[in-house]
Design a protein around this nucleic acid. Sequence first.
DNA 1: ATGAAAGCGCTAACAT
DNA 2: ATGTTAGCGCTTTCAT
Lengths: 309, 309
Amino acid sequence: VVNEDPKVGPDLASRVRAAISALDYQPDERAQQLRRGTSRTIGAAVRSFSEGHPVLREIELATRAAKLTLLAMSTEDDEQREREAVLSMGRRRVDGIVFEPIGRNHDYLLPEIEAGMPIVAFDRPAGLYIDCVLSDNAAGIGIAYRQLSLHGHRRIAYIGDDERIFTGGERAGAFRASVAANGGSLDGMVHPGPIDSRRIAAALDKALGHETPATAIITGNAAASVEVIRQLGAESGRVAMIGFDDFPLAELLRPGLTVVAQDPATIGRTAIDLLIARAADPKRPIQSMIVPVRLIERGSGELQPIGRT
Amino acid sequence: VVNEDPKVGPDLASRVRAAISALDYQPDERAQQLRRGTSRTIGAAVRSFSEGHPVLREIELATRAAKLTLLAMSTEDDEQREREAVLSMGRRRVDGIVFEPIGRNHDYLLPEIEAGMPIVAFDRPAGLYIDCVLSDNAAGIGIAYRQLSLHGHRRIAYIGDDERIFTGGERAGAFRASVAANGGSLDGMVHPGPIDSRRIAAALDKALGHETPATAIITGNAAASVEVIRQLGAESGRVAMIGFDDFPLAELLRPGLTVVAQDPATIGRTAIDLLIARAADPKRPIQSMIVPVRLIERGSGELQPIGRT
DNA sequence: ATGAAAGCGCTAACAT
DNA sequence: ATGTTAGCGCTTTCAT
């Protein structure tokens, strides 16, 4: 009787409204959902809350635009946590789940899918049975490589994530392909692995201390960019650099960091679109959407090789 | 019969387990909650997802440590959205709510409190009936002021948030008090207001173009710090600066940005502690916890006034 | 136009 | 040790 029905007497209506505000009645959403059979809620499991998450913001906006509530959880970049978060959302019977997959094996999702839960992965794929939206990693690396070539660099190094991580693998692979396509040498130039200062230091040593040293660096993610800049310190203006993935303060650095920027707005909106489409038609074919990236020139990627200035 | 009871026959137990994995049965959390009478979930409403949120991470950790599930929503820094988020959590009958209050009036919470919902505010207070945990804003400004004085600055400017925002008001007030206590002049030195480039440009003009110009700046939040650094550009090494609130890349800048850092770990844990204490004893007195801040010296705050070097 | 009853999926308290 | 039942708070259907 609370739901604004058309067939309710005005006297009763006002009495009810009076009671409502007198008791500050708020309906129990769980009971409503249980009875109604739908939760009007979608869940988002993201890798981290402590770093900014523009995609999550976009997901929240798109969710609200679709008259749904967003329930966010963090996976702390941990496979086990991801499982817990996603399963917990399943038990809450959300109407759909978007998530950033961590590991490689997502078989635990099969029962959920079987049960009709719409699921969309973003940033990384989560297997053949799950829709996903990814950035165009290969094109991004290609753009970066071309920009540096254009400015005269012939020895370009890559420092990025572990190749077992999907994005790390894609970007390192694309880098090798770019170099090969241009007839360059990979010797001492490719450094995938965990992003910690010691490994980055060793990688920089190899790349810059080579007998024909790198004059430019492409970094595979924001964490790598930051660590490389930190270690280069005052030297950082002497080697050209392009980072994969933009971050808020990249333009405050001197020189400003040229980056291959992803498009969080499109990624987020596409993820929700895919989710809604999947919910509407559970048997539609699985889709992988690739979102374009773009180069933002801020100076560091436009430096000439040293000795040519 | 699913809940690992002690009084269940082994044969039945195994048959049930078989059925469970055969059907991939997952209990409906909402029905469980409804029946059980408790949600074992706490809600967190934060101002933004797009900027990193170390406190939220800590809240998530503390929540998990207490065997509870965290349900996060974003308020997009909007009073209306805050209301919606918090009320939505109430309708889901979470066991408690932590949130970052936006506006000044939080009367809409009174019914929730009346109904026994434990609520804790952090970063800003939300009225006399709500526990809260705040950073020591006044002490932070005092520390910054002292550091700059110590390095010879006599003309120090403050550029921060609008004073109608709680933290903005506290920090601007503490700045005025510091200057007054040291017998300095405030003329042209205090600039609270919205953080947009035009206003910041005007403020810098006033402070640095004064007949006895500022030789140092204290910024009231991270956004102000970033905007000031951006506008100072290459000049940024010529004026000393201390920012309120640390941010991830402050140390990559040159000079590194000296900051008054808040303590997200303590803030987050304290918020959850307060929440649990309030849930355990609804009639305990309201508490305001003040969390200490600390100075991180990175160079920008240790510059001498120009002309004295 | 209003009231009564059934049932969403579960758990707890009962009866066997 | 197992099976049955009532009821959490709601919405929907069916009778009045």
